[in-house]
Design a binder for these strands. Sequence first.
DNA 1: TCGTTACGAAACGAACCGTTTCGTTTGTTG
DNA 2: CAACAAACGAAACGGTTCGTTTCGTAACGA
Lengths: 231, 231
Amino acid sequence: MSEPVPPGGTPKSATPKSATPKSATPPSETQSRRASIGARRSPAAEAAILDAARSLLAEKGYAGFSIDEVARRAGAGKPTIYRWWPSKADLFIAVYSADKAAAIVVPDTGALATDLAAYTTELWRFWRETPSGVAFRALLAEAQASEQAMAALRDKFLPLRLADLACVFTRAADRGEIAPADADDLLQLYIGFHWVHLLTGRIGEDAASIERMARLIVRAGRPDTAAPPTR
Amino acid sequence: MSEPVPPGGTPKSATPKSATPKSATPPSETQSRRASIGARRSPAAEAAILDAARSLLAEKGYAGFSIDEVARRAGAGKPTIYRWWPSKADLFIAVYSADKAAAIVVPDTGALATDLAAYTTELWRFWRETPSGVAFRALLAEAQASEQAMAALRDKFLPLRLADLACVFTRAADRGEIAPADADDLLQLYIGFHWVHLLTGRIGEDAASIERMARLIVRAGRPDTAAPPTR
DNA sequence: TCGTTACGAAACGAACCGTTTCGTTTGTTG
DNA sequence: CAACAAACGAAACGGTTCGTTTCGTAACGA
């Protein structure tokens, strides 16, 4: 869905015929126009479009993310965009996927609490300072209006993105810090913490809050505390 | 969304399709027209607009929530809508606020874990079965594109809506189940749990998951376990 | 060489937003 | 009772965006 569409359409053999002698369209200044490079996809056009989309998203958020504006900035035609990305969402997802490479380093400090605090600090900074943060928020928003986007988010995007954090919890379980059975639930709780802050615009560097939350998570997972009134 | 793009152009079917003679729209049946009742606001119009907005939101989500369509369904003029709700967002919030009355009963079972589980079950049912769930998701989405909506969500909407849950945690602190200092953070964790499930479309009745999460929250707040290796 | 394909420019239709004009209806005020 | 004020619905307008189509041009490939 997010991949460019291979052009395999029906060859229409009808010659344009050009009954209308349009003439004109003077090629006066062929200066900066990025002409076709022939019967193949232009890497220059693709790169220009992706770059324009990324910077536009970073500057104006999803609200200002219009195909027309992307085309203007990229010096590309809208048909060129729609040829390779059938919808606005496709282009949007492509941008995020391309950025995902520059991901986040998963900390390994030897203790869950410090791992979590470090990860959160880094993630929030990433969300604040890169187009990806904006893009992710937009993706969450988009998913609320499109069942398709929702499914993609839930089934493809999240599991992939959460793999890093999952292994932080796995290591903690191996160290005996938390009960292995709780690892998944604790991960979910921590994700929720991130999302609430992201979606309400509170992803500043509130170190105290981050640390408190990390300690709560650790405490919730402590296996030895399960003794007394667990029924 | 659209189909894969046939890049070579399609056999254009030579369609002069439009040319719709607009005329029509015969007011022939003057029956149902809701005339002015004079120099005062018409309760009938207000109710019709709110009802139309609510049902439209429930049916099509925020994507299909257009002022034009609301006006059509309500048999109202757009100026009437804009006279009383200056923007689309205002009408939208009005719908949610009106529904908020039929809110959720805050459980008081005597134990935090069971309170939380009961509350979650009820809240998710509410989100699933009323337009409000759709509306809240849409509000979250809207906030990602509009700083204004974000501020309203963070500063006005949430504190109000969270008051119920807060008192569940307060009662638990009074009973000594959790450390009073942790109440706010635990509440945040629990909210995050709700949001993640709402935003990823997983608000079915997963009783087991709900209960596990409630127990984790309680354990995270246990005051007596607050001891050692915080380093 | 000649057909195929990609390119950008431009225009188009549809949808929606928010506004304005218009004629009508009905309370309120003098 | 008459004049005014205010609300009503219909309709249209300007602006924006999406996604499509047409058109002329340019390079690859057989």
